[in-house]
Amino acid sequence: MVSTIDRASVEWATAREAYVLALEAYLARPEESTLSGAYELGRKALLDGLSPLDLVSLHASALEQTLSFPQAIDRQVSAGAMTFLLESLSPFEMPYRQFLESSVALRGLNEALENQSRRTARQIHDGAGQILFSLQLALAELMAGLPRHLTPQFGHVMQLADHLDQQLRSLSRDLYPVALDDLGLNAAVRHLLDGVATRAGLKVSFQSSVPDRLPPQIAVGLYRAIHEGVTNVVRHAHASELRVSMQKDRDGVVCAVTDDGVGIDNTGHQPAGLGLRGIRDRLKGLHGGLEVQSTAGNGTRLIITIPVASGEQSDGN
């Protein structure tokens, strides 16, 4: 059965030839260097869209050719064992296909959700935000012409408008950082830090060797992680200085958010922990990671890493 592989495709023949060579090499010299050939073949098969069943079938076919030595074990036994293996592996084909199907569906769903958030954020930012801005201008103009005794009450109205403005901005930013699309990653981070410097009175510095055009999901992930880190510093660190640096190396992006605040007390439960978990979960989705370096009283440093495949950069989107 397995010996009569008749799939007439060129890819199959090429894959089979590579498999035979690798298998023969391993059988003649069974050691790690030749064994890694098997790993590479399996990896390539996976990337080429072969299933476990295809791979075993390939193995069976290659084994049959390889075993045509005089000293080979009984060929019938070998072929029989292989047919049995093929058969016993076949149920795995169903969860495997289910996994592929779900994985595609999940990616589609994630993209749809991200796009929806982006549209809603845009509507809040450009629509409601602009109307509110016009309202604030009109109020300011009105206030200038008001009798003095009405000014305090009117000032309260303007404060309410300011609160509304802040809430809309925060809502929009949580949905999607619109600034990323408008300014690019570096300017968006700088803008964020300028805001923090003004509002929280922190001394901030920013350094970056990261290109503005990263793949969108990586730029969003990085910006959100930095935003969360910076928010933590403002809320909990009691710091006077905040430094953010971003670097791009061969493997991806590394970003450090450093403060000179009270540090994180690892023995107690701090509210900052929740935010950090959020960052970690988000980064995990991008195969990235988060490292927290902190000692009580000596500030905190967050190291955010996100891998970027070399072909993934500057896609111009």
Binding site: M1, V2, R7, L53, S57, A60, S90, P91, E93, M94
Partner: peptide
């Protein structure tokens, strides 16, 4: 399936579908 010219891998898939 074998007579129809299905590859050995597809023959196994067909047998699996029949089982299920």
């Amino acid at each position: 399936a074998a007579e129809l010219g299905f590859s050995p891998t597809d023959v196994v898939r067909i047998a699996t579908a029949i089982s299920e």
